[in-house]
Design a protein around this nucleic acid. Structure first.
Length: 474
DNA sequence: GCATGATCATGC
DNA sequence: GCATGATCATGC
C-alpha cells in the first residue's frame, strides 16, 4: 500500500495548490526546524522538495516527475535587483542523449515529453543560506505560449541538426534563441560520443535562457495570465495531432484577464530568424534618410543613430511599440549595426560594455561578462557607404565559432591578469590581432573608475576588431 | 591609412 | 547620472 499523499497526484491543479502552501515560506518553515539536523547537506533543493514535501522518490529520467499528472517540477533561483526580481541562472532540463535524441521529432523528443507542463518554483537565492531555508517567491504551472513554442521547436531542431551533421562538438548556446544546449558536467572532460562523427562532444543539457526566465518572472509577479492557443499548438506540433490521443496535457490557467499574443505570420517552415530577414527585405537598398522618411520618424544626430534606426525598423516590421523587443529580449539577442565603407572595409571596431575593474578579478571565464556576451546570438544590421549616405545592405544572425571563442578567452585572461597586477598600460591592442582589444570608453579623458587597488583609472571597454567583423560579414 | 585616444546623443 | 552604442579626431 502506498502512503496517502496530501495531494491528488493525477491532478496538476491539486499538485499546484499543495505546492502553493510554500508561498513566501521555506521548507524549514513548513516542515519544522528538526529537518535541518536530518537533511542538511543531503541533496539540492529540487531533490529535497521531491522527497520531503511531495513525498516521492525521484523517478525515471524519461517521464515527468509527477508522471500521472504529467507535470515536471523545476526549482530555480531568483535574486533581487533595484528593479525587482530577476533570474539568477539558466534553467537546466534533461541531458541531451546525442545517440538517441536525433531519432525523434520534436513532438516525441525527450525534451517535450518531459517538459511540456512545468511546475515552476522560484526561490530567493541568498549566499549564506542553506537550501532548506530558501523562501519560495513564485509558484506556478507553466506551459509555453504558442508563439514561444514555435521558436522553441525551431531551437530544438537547430540543435538536432548539428547532431545529425556530426557537429555535436560545435554546439553553442548562442546557436538558438530560447531553448539552449548548455554545457553540463563537473568539468570539461565530460565528453560524450555522438552518432555521426568520431569526435567526442561536451555533455550538454537542454536549458532555458536566463533572460527567458526573466519574462516568466515578470509575468508571474504582475499576475498576468497567458492563454495558450492550442490550435496553434496543433499546427506547431504536427498536423494530425487533433485526431490522435492527446500526447500532451492541456491546462487552462487561472481566471485573470487573459493575454493572448497572436503568432507572427510565418511562412510554412520558416524560422523566426528567417521571418525577420524576409520582413527586413523591403528596407534593403534604402538610405538612412529614406528609412527615417518611410518610418515617419525624425532623423537624429546621435552617434548611435544607425542602431536607433535599426531598432525602429524591427518595431515596425513586428508591429510593436516598446523599445525592448520581446523576442530579442527573451532570446538575449545582441543587436549591432555595422557600417561598411564604399569598398567594403570597416572604419570602426565594435565596442561593448565598460570593463568593471573591481568585478573582473572575481570572475571566472564561464561566468564572465565577456564570455556571456560572446556566446550570445548576434543580430547584425549592415549599412554600406554610398556617396554621401549609407544604404541598408542586409541583416544576419551570427554566433561566434568555438575556435574564436578560445582566442577571446586568452584575451580575457590576459586582461584580467593585467588588472590583477595593477597594469593598465599594456592591454592587448588591435594591432596584436587577437580578435578583441581593450580601448578607452568614457565621457572624456577625465572619466575614471576605481581599481581593485583603490586608484582611479580611465574607463575602458571591450572591443571586437574591425578586421574580425569584416571577415564575419563578408 | 590605420591605430589609438577622445568624445557624444540617447535613454534607462 | 551614467552606461550604452557608437563615431570623431589626431598623430605616427
Amino acid at each position: 500500500m502506498e502512503p496517502k499523499l496530501p495531494y491528488d497526484k493525477t491532478s496538476p491543479k491539486s499538485i499546484l495548490s499543495y505546492a502553493q502552501n510554500l508561498q513566501d515560506k521555506s521548507l524549514v518553515d513548513v516542515l519544522g526546524p528538526e529537518i535541518v539536523q536530518t537533511y542538511k547537506g543531503k541533496g539540492k533543493l529540487g531533490q529535497l522538495l521531491e522527497e520531503l514535501y511531495f513525498q516521492y522518490k525521484p523517478n525515471s529520467n524519461s517521464e515527468p516527475d509527477f508522471k500521472e499528472a504529467r507535470v515536471e517540477l523545476k526549482t530555480s533561483p531568483i535574486k533581487k535587483i533595484s528593479k525587482g526580481f530577476v533570474s539568477k541562472e539558466r534553467l537546466v532540463f534533461n541531458i541531451i542523449n546525442y545517440l538517441e535524441e536525433h531519432k525523434e521529432q520534436f513532438r516525441t523528443s525527450s525534451f517535450w515529453k518531459k517538459n511540456h507542463l512545468l511546475l515552476l518554483m522560484f526561490y530567493l537565492y541568498e549566499q549564506e543560506t542553506i537550501d532548506l531555508k530558501y523562501v519560495f517567491k513564485i509558484i506556478r504551472l507553466w506551459q509555453f505560449p504558442a508563439t514561444d513554442l514555435k521558436i522553441i521547436k525551431d531551437d530544438w531542431e537547430a540543435i538536432i541538426k548539428k547532431i545529425r551533421d556530426g557537429k555535436a562538438h560545435e554546439i553553442s548556446e548562442g546557436d538558438t534563441l530560447y531553448l539552449g544546449a548548455c554545457t553540463k558536467g563537473a568539468d570539461h572532460n565530460s565528453l560524450r560520443p555522438q552518432p555521426f562523427s568520431d569526435e567526442r562532444a561536451m555533455q550538454r543539457a537542454f536549458s532555458l535562457k536566463s533572460k527567458y526566465l526573466n519574462y516568466i518572472i515578470e509575468k508571474s509577479l504582475l499576475k498576468e495570465e497567458l492563454v495558450i492557443d492550442y490550435e496553434e499548438y496543433d499546427k506547431i506540433l504536427g498536423e494530425n495531432i487533433v485526431s490522435e490521443p492527446s500526447s500532451y496535457l492541456r491546462v487552462n490557467f487561472g481566471d485573470a484577464e487573459p493575454v493572448v499574443k497572436t503568432i507572427y505570420d510565418y511562412k510554412r517552415g520558416e524560422t523566426f530568424e528567417e521571418l525577420i530577414n524576409r520582413k527586413f527585405a523591403p528596407y534593403f537598398g534604402l538610405s538612412e534618410v529614406e528609412i527615417f522618411d518611410k518610418l515617419a520618424i525624425a532623423d537624429t544626430h546621435s552617434k548611435s543613430k544607425f542602431f536607433l534606426l535599426s531598432r525602429e525598423i524591427i518595431k515596425a516590421i513586428l508591429g510593436v511599440t516598446k523599445n525592448k523587443i520581446e523576442e530579442f529580449e527573451k532570446a538575449d539577442i545582441e543587436m549591432k549595426t555595422i557600417r561598411l565603407e564604399a569598398k567594403g572595409s570597416l572604419k570602426e571596431s565594435m565596442s561593448f560594455a565598460q570593463i568593471k575593474f573591481k568585478e573582473i578579478i572575481h570572475e571566472e571565464w564561464e561566468n564572465s561578462y565577456w564570455y556571456s556576451t560572446l556566446t550570445k546570438r548576434f543580430f547584425f544590421v549592415v549599412f554600406q557607404k554610398d556617396h554621401d549616405c549609407y544604404i541598408l545592405k542586409r541583416v544576419l544572425f551570427w554566433t561566434m565559432p568555438p575556435g574564436d571563442l578560445k582566442i577571446a578567452k586568452d584575451f580575457w585572461l590576459d586582461t584580467k591578469a593585467k588588472i590583477e597586477s595593477d597594469d593598465y598600460n599594456h592591454f592587448i591592442k588591435i594591432s596584436d590581432n587577437r580578435i578583441c582589444h581593450v580601448r578607452p570608453k568614457g565621457a572624456n579623458s577625465k572619466d575614471v573608475m576605481e581599481t581593485p587597488t583603490g586608484r582611479l583609472e580611465k574607463k575602458k571597454c571591450y572591443w571586437l576588431n574591425s578586421s574580425y567583423i569584416r571577415q564575419v560579414v563578408s
